[in-house]
């Protein structure tokens, strides 16, 4: 009853083999004894063996106790929440340079909070407080060059 472990082991073995094959094509630099792919090839082969071992254990049924707490299938709402986490992070990466840090971060925090079921008030409060705090700490105290927000620094030049 460890069909998932058999599949997992085979996937691991496949990926590891691909890694080792890619490594085998690496050149040898002058002055070095082995190719730059020597150690990665060992790692890839080790990974492939571990994958086969996992599959074999699954075959023998040793992995059956795995389906426990995390076993329930995710709900649709859960999938939406999970995807929106990614979407938010990606949108931040794409747009922050253009909008400046504070609006982008506030949008991410506030938008996600709404998706997670916060009230509008709570989400807005978290968005404003969170983005401003992060901006102050990172940009001012720690001098990290976060994308600037021109209209905000004009309003509040600190």
């Amino acid at each position: 009853m460890a069909r998932s472990d058999i599949a997992l082991g085979l996937v691991i073995a496949g990926l590891s083999t691909a890694f080792a094959v890619e490594a085998s094509g690496l050149p040898t630099a002058p002055g070095t004894e082995f190719s730059a792919g020597f150690v990665p090839m060992i790692l890839g082969c080790g990974g492939a063996l571990a994958g086969l071992g996992i599959a074999a254990e699954g075959w023998r049924g040793a992995g059956a106790d795995q389906q426990g707490e995390a076993g329930q299938p995710p709900t649709l709402a859960g999938l939406v929440r999970c995807l929106s986490v990614f979407l938010a992070a990606i949108l931040y990466g794409l747009f922050a340079a253009r909008t400046g840090f504070v609006p982008a971060a506030a949008a991410v925090i506030g938008g996600l909070a709404l998706v997670f079921g916060a009230s509008l008030r709570l989400a807005a409060g978290a968005a404003v407080a969170g983005s401003l705090t992060l901006f102050l700490v990172f940009s001012h105290l720690l001098r990290v060059p976060l994308p600037p927000t021109p209209w905000l620094s004009a309003l509040w030049p600190f």
Partner: peptide, 20 residues
Amino acid sequence: VPPTILPPLVLMACIVGAFS
């Protein structure tokens, strides 16, 4: 912190942390 706003805040802190 309410569990509805903690993950977004943590996510944003992680993004800035990784960026910096």
